[in-house]
Design a protein around this nucleic acid. Sequence first.
DNA 1: CTCGATGCAAAAGATTTGCACCCGA
DNA 2: TCGGGTGCAAATCTTTTGCATCGAG
Lengths: 121, 121
Amino acid sequence: MKFRLTKSREMILNLLNNKQKPLNAEMIYELLDEKIYLSTVYRNLELFLENNLVSRLFINNTAYYYINKTDHKHFMVCLGCHDMFEIPCSHFDEGLLGDHQDFKISSHELTVYGYCSSCQL
Amino acid sequence: MKFRLTKSREMILNLLNNKQKPLNAEMIYELLDEKIYLSTVYRNLELFLENNLVSRLFINNTAYYYINKTDHKHFMVCLGCHDMFEIPCSHFDEGLLGDHQDFKISSHELTVYGYCSSCQL
DNA sequence: CTCGATGCAAAAGATTTGCACCCGA
DNA sequence: TCGGGTGCAAATCTTTTGCATCGAG
């Protein structure tokens, strides 16, 4: 890794490791015991992303980050309570590229929207 | 449909119909012959979204909209030139829900990132 | 005529950036 | 020590909202 392991970086990574759900910068900022600036949270998340320590997904103009484990995964988002549930990655079928077989895939992002059991009432 | 067909709405829908790629609010605003306010663009896109005339996807904190045809589809985004290429929808395998079989899916969004043939140099 | 749609301005929300000071290696 | 990291403030970018006026049905 091409960066220093500072206290704020350690705290953010620990937090993402403990919560097993995607968190946005604001949530991380609020959850940290010791306060660091929101801009530092953003700067470090960006760094983690570049170094493949975390993945990012967007929900309504907001970026959410989750720690990368060995296996790639996706999330279902409940439109009622906004809770997220992990789902395994069904690997992307490259046959679907159609006319674009020469496209070099580097990553993919799948988000499923719906309602969890508690929110269906 | 529960809304009036005004000139601005017609223009936006025509534009989305012609371009077969997702466009963001700013792009739509710029491409329209007759200028309308950006807030009007946003208000109408929101309306179309609620009425299932268009779909939305997020790329780097920005919402992109594309017209809904009969078949659901997804897009590959080139990280080099930012062009987008349509790919057909491989229907989501609900077996992947795992512990969450009771989750009621309303939609899903898949985005593939990579490099198109021209950008691989 | 009536209520929804738009122009316009301003606010709100998310993220980025500049700069001086600080600290990890 | 030294160059990267952080605090802090301010800017930027995207989207939303309030309100008076306008226009489609």
